[in-house]
Design a protein around this nucleic acid. Structure first.
Lengths: 160, 160
DNA sequence: CAGGAAAGTTAGTCGATGCTAACTTATGCT
DNA sequence: AGCATAAGTTAGCATCGACTAACTTTCCTG
């Protein structure tokens, strides 16, 4: 999966930024659903004591079959602990991922609200954005929440 | 594709926010790649006069085969205009999407830099985030860029 | 202008994510 | 206890996005 990529990236270095970026974007994709699921599972457990597949069916608006498949993958990848017809629990690994995702999610949501986005849109957008926010950006958001906007950078003095 | 979703969403209304959100996330997914591609194609055309598949191979660090497939889909969906062994042009529809994506991308990048994210991370994160930013959030970003942070909402005065 | 390299296409494969349909297991209610 | 309904699983299919391998077309260069 990495063999001939290096050469392609090599070529791409002549270009502005990209290439590597899209690699990242793609591999992230895989784990986005994992994050969404473990986060949801954690929420349901808090709310109901246990999490059943049917809760996720409702949460994600997909069919039972899809949830079943996805849970299998999560189980295969060590995020959840479950057995046929049993409730779904998080493993340590799953729990770590869930709480990390939740933290990030909260910050992004709070940040969006802080910059003037309405509650509803903030909820929705943070859902999509959270998976693409790097540590650096997250830190910047935290700083803004705590201290407000940083001073404007002197990068465009010639413009004024 | 919509038949039994309505009933599932119905069920989901008992829950907090979700359900519909994830529907959106999924259908967005399809168009994310379309956006990335038309944006890249537009850039390459500006830079080189024409865009060939090989330019996209470099840009996205994927194989020729993948680009070929993707271009076929874009053609099928009316975003690009091309023929075998010919350069790739954007249709009116493709152009519209490209310039819209580019605009959004620029705003997100500028915004991230403004809140203190480094150039490199701003480029990378905006790539992933741009597809998940609603008009409302985009407007909020524009306002911050123009006028700074809005006054803090009176929602948490008890906290201070 | 011929031949080879570069560019592009096609065929076949894989995994993720979704679906429907059909089946099995569990539960709950009378 | 016994059956209907709810919950969960399995099988089979489709699409997308990626890959490799093999082939074809273009185009440049000697």
């Amino acid at each position: 999966m990495t063999g001939q990529i290096s050469s392609t990236v090599e070529v791409a270095r002549r270009h502005s930024v990209p290439a590597k970026i899209y690699q990242r974007t793609r591999s992230d994709h895989a784990s986005e659903i994992a994050e969404d699921y473990v986060e949801a599972i954690a929420d349901v457990i808090v709310a109901n004591g246990v999490c059943r597949a049917v809760d996720l069916v409702a949460h994600f608006a997909v069919t039972h079959a899809t949830v079943s498949n996805t849970i299998s993958r999560l189980h295969r990848d060590g995020f959840v602990d479950t057995a046929p017809y049993q409730p779904i629990a998080l493993t340590a690994k799953g729990n770590r991922l869930a709480s990390q995702a939740k933290k990030r999610h909260k910050i992004v949501t709070a940040f969006l609200k802080r910059i003037g986005v309405g509650d509803r849109a903030a909820e929705i957008d943070s859902e999509g954005m959270e998976h693409h926010v790097s540590k650096e950006t997250l830190d910047a958001m935290k700083r803004v929440l705590a201290d407000g906007l940083p001073p404007e950078k002197p990068s465009n003095p010639k413009l004024s």
